[in-house]
């Protein structure tokens, strides 16, 4: 039997694949122009875990790769970020910094684009930084279907009729079960596609 997929379509994607897998929550050109406008900004990707904040952050940074991205899940030190020469930076998981550090960061850098579970109004107020927030909340069947189909296409070894894989009814059932938690949906489907004969 010919394998339909090179790998489980709902495994984590490579950084180079983000561009093809993502269904953007904002207009890319508009956002790039906003960042390059010279205005001092805190651009906040706000939402609960599993809603796509980090993926969008990495995706946006790929189009602005002259500016560094720091992931605070790893071993990145606050001092290292502060001392980096770039005045515009991307920060994933800014909640790993304490409030004093966040204020200091907002003061030291011209523009900080970051992911967070809670809004950072207070820090922006203290640092006198204009805040621009993008909320990662909500889901609909059309977008979810698009996301799932892109994953299938990326992993496919041959052209797949993606419409035959997920029906509208199934997508709606996923939304009923997991709400807008994309990560939970992807993890659920990963498990389903681990079987020897996936859809």
């Amino acid at each position: 039997m010919i394998k339909k997929y090179s790998y489980n379509p709902f495994a984590g994607i490579l950084e180079e694949e983000i561009d093809e897998a993502i269904c953007p929550r904002f207009d890319l050109d508009e956002m790039v122009n906003r960042i390059n406008s010279g205005e001092s900004l805190a651009i906040e990707f706000l939402g609960r875990k599993g809603r796509g904040k980090s993926t969008h952050l990495m995706w946006l940074q790929q189009y602005l790769d002259q500016y560094p991205i720091f992931s605070l899940n790893g071993n990145t030190s606050f001092q290292g970020i502060l001392e980096h020469e770039s005045r515009i930076i991307f920060v994933d998981s800014i909640h790993h910094l304490n409030i004093v550090e966040r204020v200091a960061l907002f003061r030291a850098k011209k523009t900080v684009i970051y992911t967070t579970h809670f809004n950072r109004k207070l820090e922006c107020l203290l640092a006198k930084k204009k805040r621009f927030c993008i909320r990662f909340k909500g889901i609909n069947a059309v977008i979810l279907t698009d996301i799932l189909n892109k994953r299938l296409t990326l992993a496919a070894t041959k052209i797949v009729d993606t419409e035959a894989v997920f029906t509208t009814k199934e997508v709606q059932a996923l939304i009923r079960k997991f709400g807008d938690d994309y990560r939970a949906i992807i993890n659920h489907l990963y498990q389903e596609f681990q079987c020897p004969n996936p859809r």
């Binding site: 875990k49 993926t55 899940n73 790893g74 967070t116 990560r183």
Partner: peptide, 8 residues
């Protein structure tokens, strides 16, 4: 260990 997103 899944480090995707804002929490492990």
């Amino acid at each position: 260990i899944d480090r995707r997103g804002t929490s492990d």
